[in-house]
């Protein structure tokens, strides 16, 4: 295991908070000045939304050990709930709508988390598919959710925080970045608290957890609730900041799998892992399309791109599961340690 070797090098030279703070300073201070509209629209906004969804799913699957295939359903629930709160509740600030949307997603998460009290692993994963199909069906079936729009499509409202309008790509980027930062920080606090320890305890040994007095049922439902809250808010960012118009079909099973792949590739039970995985998932198709266009020219059309993207992604997941089950995060830590070691020994 990698953790054994970590004792031999005192890897972090700087305090733990330095890297995230520097990264945030860069994201707030530098990126808006140098970034192109393409960078925000095609890369950073989907990256932020999917990262947050990955953080949410990681709390449930990575930390608490409950596999879920319903992530896209909770994103959809969040997006449509925020849309309706914003539309139907007079004078509710946007942040209030987003918070309440998270609560709605959390409530749905608790309902569809109930099978986890009896089911484990593969069987639980299949039962969470119910959420996936039910939410998508309900949003399509009842046009009230989309304000009687014929196609079920909703248009995002203008984004503003306390009267300060956030228009344009940069504004939406800052809006998304702020929400992701706050929730990620809170998620980090959560997983290092006693509740986070309880999650891991239930994942690693449920019987022992029960014997030492951890309230297993309550803790599992709490994991579903918190995870769904975060994924719901990620859905709001996806709908309001990234795409601006969404329909229920955009939150299909493929999206759920995408988020699951993000945390598998990035690293289970790691907050950073969600960001690593999301970065790969977002950047990878763009890079692949560039590379394919460069090598094959006109032969590499969108159909071939889609096909090759699936093949390479599938191969990548198999490779990761075999070679690096702890994901990109473990890979990154190992490389960083090597570099640090090489640097120290020179």
């Amino acid at each position: 295991m990698t953790a054994i070797t970590s004792d031999f090098f005192s890897a972090p030279v700087l305090p733990k908070w330095v890297a995230p703070v520097l990264l945030l300073a860069f994201a707030y201070g530098v990126v808006p000045l140098i970034g192109s509209s393409y960078l925000f629209e095609a890369i950073l906004l989907p990256f932020l939304a999917l990262s947050l969804a990955g953080v949410g799913l990681n709390i449930l699957t990575g930390y608490a050990g409950q596999v879920s295939l319903g992530s896209a359903a909770f994103m959809a629930a969040g997006a449509f709930a925020a849309y309706n709160f914003d539309l139907r509740v007079e004078g509710l600030p946007l942040i209030g709508s987003i918070f309440l949307a998270g609560i709605v997603a959390a409530a749905i998460g608790i309902v569809f988390g109930l099978p986890s009290l009896r089911l484990k692993g593969f069987y639980l994963a299949v039962s969470t598919l119910a959420a996936q199909f039910f939410v998508q069906w309900a949003l399509t079936k009842f046009s009230w959710f989309s304000n009687n729009s014929a196609s079920g499509v909703i248009d995002a409202p203008r984004l503003s925080i306390s009267g300060f309008a956030l228009d344009g790509a940069i504004g939406r980027y800052l809006f998304a970045l702020t929400i992701v930062t706050v929730l990620t920080f809170l998620a980090h606090r959560l997983v290092t608290s006693q509740t986070g320890r309880n999650f891991i305890a239930i994942r690693d040994n449920e019987t022992a957890a029960r014997i030492i007095g951890i309230p297993v049922l309550k803790t599992k439902l709490l994991a579903f609730a918190i995870s769904s809250f975060i994924i719901g808010v990620a859905g709001v960012i996806w709908a309001f900041a990234y795409l601006r118009t969404v329909e229920p079909d955009g939150f299909d099973l493929d999206r759920s799998f995408q988020i699951l792949f993000i945390i598998i590739i990035g690293g289970l039970a790691s907050i950073r892992g969600a960001f690593f995985g999301a970065a790969l998932i977002v950047v990878f198709p763009l890079g692949l399309s560039r590379l394919g266009g460069f090598l094959l020219g006109d032969l590499f059309d969108s159909g071939v791109l889609d096909m090759s993207q699936r093949i390479v992604l599938g191969a990548l997941i198999i490779l990761f599961l075999i070679l690096e089950p702890d994901g990109l995060v473990a890979l990154w830590d190992r490389i960083r340690r090597r570099l640090l070691f090489a640097w120290q020994s020179t």
């Binding site: 809170l186 959560l190 006693q194 320890r197 305890a201 957890a209 951890i214």
Partner: peptide, 30 residues
């Protein structure tokens, strides 16, 4: 029946989890 993914200290501290009265929100916000 240890919790493999927790540090030794956290494993031992979890033996006191039954006493914890604060909820997750209190713990997150400190």
């Amino acid at each position: 029946a240890l919790f493999k993914g927790l540090s030794v200290l956290d494993n031992v501290a979890s033996g006191l989890a039954y006493k914890v009265r604060s909820n997750f929100a209190g713990q997150v916000l400190g």
